[in-house]
Amino acid sequence: MDKGTPSSALPTCAISLNINGTNRVLDIHPWVTLLDLLRGPMELTGTKKGCDHGQCGACTVLIDGERVNACLKLAVSIDGAEITTIEGLGTPQDMHPMQKAFVEHDAFQCGYCTAGQICSAVGLVAEGRAHSRAEIRELMSGNLCRCGAYTNIADAIEHVLDQEGVTPLREAAE
């Protein structure tokens, strides 16, 4: 290639994604990750880049309802998928119960890992496999928090599980 060749000279692929309930048809380079697609062209910057290598969980989003690291997903490979990001869960005025619980339990400090933590926690609740404090801890270990809000995050998740009619600690004791 010559100097000054624009990126548009490279091949693109057409895909469609449903992002937070809206269908989007996109023409993208195949090397664009879901994370960079969300944060860049989609301007959904709530999803964060903390390592870009699947080592921190800050980019966790829900793909077809399952929590996944967006940084390691080539967007082209999930053509047709439904994506839910933090923006799709709730807004400051109309928060998702998990978002409310995070605020109430001060389950964050700097807030940078928070979108990933909340998406991960929503995924965890849907999976239905966390029935004790220890299970919450283990099943949230893919989301690092350098501010060290872990105990408050566990409190927030426990609160939501309780609200959903699951009483995690008692169940574990039985």
Binding site: T60, R67, V68, N69, S120, G123, L124, L139, S141, G142
Partner: peptide, 9 residues
């Protein structure tokens, strides 16, 4: 191994 979200993928 790994984490729940990595295992999902």
């Amino acid at each position: 191994g790994a984490s729940p979200q990595l295992r999902n993928a």
